[in-house]
């Protein structure tokens, strides 16, 4: 079982490399039981979107 620290690590890496089937499964299992990491996951997506939008906001 992943803990939150490992899960946050994988969620971040998923934005930088293709993650394996096993990793994806482990994340999904963890997200089922963890509100904090579910929020973190959504926030990562938002942060990426915002960072890529930033140059257009100057």
């Amino acid at each position: 079982m992943l803990n939150c620290k490992q899960s946050s690590e994988l969620l971040s890496q998923a934005l930088d490399r293709p993650i394996t089937f096993r990793e994806r499964l482990a994340i999904r299992l963890h997200l089922l039981i963890c509100d904090g990491c579910r929020n973190f996951d959504k926030q990562l997506t938002f942060i990426r979107k915002a960072a890529r939008e930033l140059p257009r906001k100057f």
Binding site: N3, K5, N39
Partner: peptide, 11 residues
């Protein structure tokens, strides 16, 4: 133990 010190709250 790897748990969030303060779990992220929804935005």
């Amino acid at each position: 133990d790897g748990h969030w010190f303060a779990p992220p709250q929804a935005w």
